[in-house]
Structures are given as C-alpha cells and as structure tokens.
Design a protein around this nucleic acid. Structure first.
Lengths: 185, 185
DNA sequence: CGTCCCATGTAAAAGGTTACATGATTTC
DNA sequence: GAAATCATGTAACCTTTTACATGGGACG
C-alpha cells in the first residue's frame, strides 16, 4: 500500500468510481497514469479493500465500478492516524538556473517567461476547480471543505510562483538590485 | 542521461568536487541519496563527460574528485537549449485533506500545525543559504545569481505555504468564511 | 560508549513513465 | 479523415528509496 493507493481509497469514500474516473479525479492532487492506477485497484480488490462490478454502457465502453469495503475504510482510517510525509521537491529549472551563466541572458529570460505562463495556467486551472465547488464548501464542516482548501493551496502556490517570475524579470531588467532579502520583492 | 546527471554536470562547471560533496550541494535543489549519485558519476566518467583523480586524506577517508571534461561541457550546453520540463507535484497532505471528514477536526488542526512548522524550517533554511551568498550575487551578471534566485524561489514558496496554513487555521477557528476567493486571505 | 560526519560503493525493491494493445463514438 | 474522449489492461524501462557493506576520526 503506497500513498497513491490510500488516495484512491480516500476518493472512493465519496463515490463509487471507475478506474478511469479515479484517474481523472486524482490527477489534480497526485498525477498518475492509468497504467499505474489499474494494477493498484486490482491488488486492493484482491486484498478485499475494494469490491467491483461491471457496468455495461451502449455509447461508451463498459466500465468496472469500484466500491470501498468496510475493511478498506478501516485500512484508510489507520493510515490517517500515521505521520504525514512531505514529498521532495524537484524542479529542473532550479538545476538549470544554478549554472545558466555558461549560456546567455536571453535563455534565462525565456525560461522565466515560459515558467510564468505555466504558473498562470495552473492558477487558472485550480481557480476553475474552486469555482466548480458548492459555495458552502468554505465551511469546515462541509464534505468538500478539504477540496476547497487543497485547491486554494495549489492556486496560492501558483500565484507565489508567478510573483517569483515577476521578481526575477524585474531584477534582470534593471540589471541590479538594492537588497537580497527574499521577502522584500 | 537524466536530469540529475545534468544537474551534477552543472555543479561541476563551478568546482572540482567529490561525489559526497556533490550530494550535499545538489540536495537543496534536487534531493538525491549517495546511492543514486555514485553510479551516475561512474557512468558519466565512462562516457568521458567527467574525469577523476583520488585525493588522499589523513584525517578523513580518501576521496575521488571529479572534473568536467570539454565533452561534458558540450553535452551540458546541448541540454540547456532543450525545453525545460516541469516536475509533477505530489503532496500526501492533499490526499488526506480531500477525505479528512472520515476522521475528526482535531486531526486537521494537527496536520496544519505540523505543516506550518515544516514550511518555517524550510524558509529559515533557504534564507540561511541566501545569507551565505556574497552580496554581489543579486546582480544578474554574478556567477552566483542563479543560486540567489533559486534559493529565493524556495523561500518564497515556503512563505506561501505558511500563509496557506495560517489561512486554513483562521478558517477552522472561525468555523465559517465570507468568500471563497483564493487570493483574498 | 554511542552517535555523527566523512567517504565510497552495490543490490534489491518500490514507484512512476512510456510504450504496446484494442476499439467504439464524437467532434473538428 | 484525424484527433480526442472513454475504457481497460500488460510489459518494459527508468528513477528513486532502502538496505547492505566498510571504516576511521571527532565529540559528548
């Protein structure tokens, strides 16, 4: 049982879902391909954390709907009371920046511009997800409160990324800077 | 040749380094264990991107110092002109939050508190790295400008994370909220 | 006396990506 | 006619983590 498996179990506490649908639902929080998800679901069914049934469809391919079992809920609950891990952050851009001097300043400007666009797309994406939530999700007792704060986190992180890009752009435009305090942008 | 390999090559454009030292130097930007780095360095030496020599030490174990070759610089430069990838973001906390309702509110408060502390430690860490840089690193022409902006990025991200934690804490303290606009905290 | 830092390596296992494989329906 | 969406699965490969393996010096 890895983190992704628990995440899938968690999604299944809300709705009965197909593997394909679970892939789409978990993507915003934990990118995973179908080739990784289908075997995990099979294994969890073997371990009796999930049960499944085939739904026949006429216009679309048939699908296998998964449901969490009592044992599944128990296993999920046990996980919830274990320490939360923090994932390592790996950004190729960082590795390029620390040696970008061997190239030219235009390349730096291009990277920052591209990255800013990427952050913008991400911010828009998560704000769309927020808009799709019911208004009552802002209340801590609401069942979608978790989605509300998680999507807000992603949007805030993207915004911080954009601010960093703008800060770098200003720095390279002016060619110099007064201070090197990180939170004085 | 994976991203980590290029990152190691990049660090070696600055100084001749041992594998152990490269591990310590790359950790802030790309977490990697020695067991991953040593084989990559060996392979790059085989491919003649690096050369090495043993340095005998009396008080510490002997070490193998790596130097980048002309071929290595060429390969690194080619990589610099390829598209920059963006790493997927995976956070266990997000997966827990979207189904935390099956537990209790105290657990949520605990997770946010712990996460805030973690962000604080990260911010302090990257600000210490910034303080260790020479003052002139703020200038885009300086050889440490890359480190300056990369460490600032990490510090800003950590700060954004803390702001999110505080925002969530406020939400759960007040028990309700007026708006659900992400950038109105 | 135990733990941390230095320093190098290998092996096995787990996690994740890319490619292979199939196939109907819808949309441009 | 091409591409995207829905829908499931397997196999090969690459990346990363954990564990095995060794050993001296410093510090408390």
């Amino acid at each position: 049982m890895n983190i992704l498996s628990y995440g899938l179990l968690g999604l299944l506490t809300r709705d009965e879902s197909s593997g394909y649908d679970l892939m789409l639902r978990i993507q915003p929080h934990w990118p995973a391909k179908h080739s990784q998800i289908y075997p995990l679901l099979s294994r969890m069914e073997e371990d009796e954390l999930l049960s499944s049934r085939w739904i026949e469809q006429t216009d679309k391919p048939d699908k296998k709907m998964y449901k969490i079992t009592d044992k599944g809920i128990q296993v999920l609950l046990e996980w919830m009371y274990t320490p939360v891990s923090t994932s390592p952050i790996r950004d190729e851009l960082s590795l390029r920046l620390i040696c970008f001097q061997i190239t030219n300043p235009a390349l730096l400007r291009q990277w920052i511009e591209e990255r800013r666009q990427w952050y913008q797309i991400r911010q828009d994406y998560y704000e769309d997800l927020l808009k799709a939530l019911p208004d009552e999700a802002v209340q801590p007792t609401h069942s979608y409160f978790g989605d509300y704060i998680v999507n807000t986190k992603a949007a805030m992180k993207a915004k911080a990324g954009m601010e960093w890009c703008d800060w770098v752009s200003d720095l390279i435009r002016s060619g110099h800077a007064e201070q090197k305090v990180s939170n004085s942008h």
